[in-house]
Nucleic acid binder design. Structure first.
Lengths: 145, 145
DNA sequence: TCTTGAAGCTACAGTAGCTGTAGCCAATAG
DNA sequence: CTATTGGCTACAGCTACTGTAGCTTCAAGA
């Protein structure tokens, strides 16, 4: 059974461009082509793309997924490395949750104290302008995903 | 009192390039220049940059910050709009927390069930490969910040 | 057989919010 | 006077896609 790129994308629940992008960055192998130069995929590719998408849904970055894939290609190896990658992702997720919960508290406080008057009395604006009035202190916590 | 870009950046706790970037995208006004073409800032600029950085720390996107700034420049207006922006940010933060908590659960489950054997028996790899074994089901939840 | 519309192709630009680099010029301390 | 630090512009790069333009291929209906 062979599939066009559209079928593959549908099967894994992503866009056609995303599939081509994964090929471009080396997450998916370059597939055979039809006479008319169209990509032809097999079940193996569906499985791999599903794997990638699922890992993405869990927030794994592409580099981590690359590692996981190369691990899954060596089934006789011990799985400590895969485990470590997952643990790392878990602690990243925990870190983000903590950060977001601090933001949430601060935002709630800001909003709660808003007297719905003029901008000049607005707690939201005031707190944003004055770091001292806020409980969230960041050094450089860029957060993604 | 006038400050160079480096002092300004230090005062607000960000990088010099970030200041220039904010100028470029119109969040900071173009400041006067010294004889040697260096930017010269005043306390007003420090306040504004502090405002921006703080809002960024709270996760507000630059567009929202732009709106908040133009609101704070009209202190006699009612503050409902500022309030609404903050509420929107709050619900965004809540959404992300929920999402991350689902990820966290799933990652914990994956890791917990890992038997520390071979890759071929690895729950981490297995769960990633099979959507049916997982509780997190995404349609297209891209998440940032 | 012809046509039409959907789906595929490549190549490139754009998204958010910075960050880093190259190659230069200005300012200041010793 | 010189060395170092800091500033200048312009541009490339980061993540992980997404969208667009302009073209070709494929499959189904008349």
């Amino acid at each position: 059974m062979q599939f066009t790129i559209g079928r593959l994308a549908d099967a894994a629940g992503c866009k056609v461009q995303t599939v081509r992008y994964y090929e471009q960055v080396g997450l998916l192998r370059r597939p055979e082509r039809s006479g008319g130069n169209q990509r032809l995929y097999s079940q193996v590719d569906i499985d791999r793309l599903t794997f990638i998408r699922h890992a993405r849904d869990l927030g794994f970055p592409l580099d981590a997924i690359r590692d996981l894939i190369s691990l899954s290609d060596r089934p006789d190896q011990p799985c400590d490395a895969a485990d470590a990658i997952a643990r790392e992702q878990l602690s990243e997720v925990k870190r983000r949750i903590e950060h977001l919960q601090a933001l949430r508290l601060e935002l709630e406080r800001m909003i709660e104290q808003c007297s719905h008057g003029r901008i000049s009395d607005c707690r939201v604006i005031e707190v944003l302008g004055d770091h001292g009035k806020c409980a969230v202190h960041q050094t450089n916590g860029r957060v993604t995903s």
